[in-house]
Simulated scan of single mutants.
Amino acid sequence: MNLTGARSLVAIWRNGRDTGYFSAIRRRPRGDLDGRTLLCRTGRLAGLFPDLRHLPGAKSAIGMPIVIEVVMMSVAAIMLMLTKVNVDEVPKTATLRAGVVAVIGIFGLAWLGDSFIAANKEVIVPAIGHLAEVAPWTFAFGLFFASVLLYSQAATTRALMPLGIVLGIPPQFLIAMFPSVNGYFFIPTYGSLIAAINFDLSGTTRIGKYVLNHSFMIPGLVATATAVSSGLLLARLMF
């Protein structure tokens, strides 16, 4: 059970009524579960057997992102045909609106963050480098706050991990610091965060009055700090 479900359980225990989370599960169409099962199994097969992703005459297999997109669209089309859903009503649903917001958030904000870092790389990267030279463990903070701006683990890793190697930080410590590239939850504008807030029918997942006091802040900080601390401890003990 996720954090939303746990909060709903507490609300039910306090108020003696269903806040919407479990009602939504009971109302969930069976086709939704079957479609996701088919999607997961097809994706696993394509990943386990690359030969399934080879097109006639192609030199290499189709990438998994494209396969996932094709399978998702195919499963969605099959579900629409089998369930005879009124397609005109689909764009009006909260799920689709949340999904569109998530897409815009992911691509738009990631592009914005990447452009910002690219334009100011000469200022940001040396500043993080000077701080890491004095105290190498602070490089994790640099990774974290860079990921807040970049909205991408891959972009943060590509931009700063080479700097960590140049600074002479041992590889095992860089690996231990890797969880700190997941700082995009800090500012609640990432697509998946917005979608999660819209999907939560119980209303317990929300953005607070001061923006940063949102539902993802404490779990995100605790998870990141615990992962990095545990990794650094293991790196110290094992190497």
Rank of each mutant, 00 (worst) to 15 (best):
Y210D: 04
M1H: 08
L9V: 09
A132L: 09
V101E: 01
L174M: 07
G129N: 11
F116V: 15
P188C: 04
L3Q: 11
F199G: 03
S147L: 08
G113H: 08
P126L: 12
G113N: 09
I128K: 02
L33Y: 14
P219L: 11
V125M: 11
N213S: 12
G35E: 02
P162M: 12
T19F: 12
I194L: 14
L212W: 14
L33W: 13
N2F: 06
I165Y: 10
I12C: 06
P162E: 11
P171A: 11
A223I: 11
A98I: 01
L52N: 04
V90Q: 06
N86I: 10
G43M: 15
I62D: 02
S229E: 04
A135Q: 09
C40Q: 05
G183H: 05
W13C: 07
G113V: 14
L201E: 09
N2E: 06
G16K: 03
S60I: 07
F173S: 10
N182R: 02
G20V: 08
V10S: 13
G183P: 02
N2R: 08
I218M: 10
L143R: 00
A154Q: 11
V134K: 12
G191Y: 08
L33P: 00
W111K: 12
G105F: 12
V125R: 02
A235T: 02
A223G: 03
A24L: 02
A154P: 00
E122K: 06
I165F: 14
P171K: 04
M177S: 03
T226R: 11
L33F: 15
F116G: 04
A6Y: 07
V10H: 07
A11T: 11
V70H: 03
R236P: 00
T224A: 13
L9A: 07
I104F: 14
V148D: 02
A146H: 01
Q172I: 14
V71S: 11
P29A: 06
R44A: 15
V10G: 00
I128R: 01
A61W: 02
M64A: 05
M177E: 01
F173D: 00
M81S: 07
V181Y: 00
K209N: 13
G164C: 05
T189R: 03
R17L: 07
T205I: 12
L237D: 02
F199E: 09
T205G: 05
D32E: 14
V100M: 11
F141S: 06
N213V: 12
L33D: 04
V90P: 03
C40A: 15
D32F: 14
D88Q: 12
V123T: 13
L221C: 12
G31K: 00
A77I: 13
L237W: 15
F49M: 04
R44F: 14
V71W: 04
R17S: 09
R27M: 09
A6I: 13
T156I: 08
A235W: 10
Y210V: 11
G164Y: 13
V228M: 08
A11M: 13
R17A: 13
G20E: 01
V134A: 15
F141C: 07
A127E: 10
P179Q: 02
N2C: 12
T226G: 05
G57W: 03
A225V: 10
N182V: 10
K84I: 03
M217S: 11
T93M: 10
F49C: 01
D34N: 07
G20F: 05
S192F: 06
S8L: 08
V228F: 08
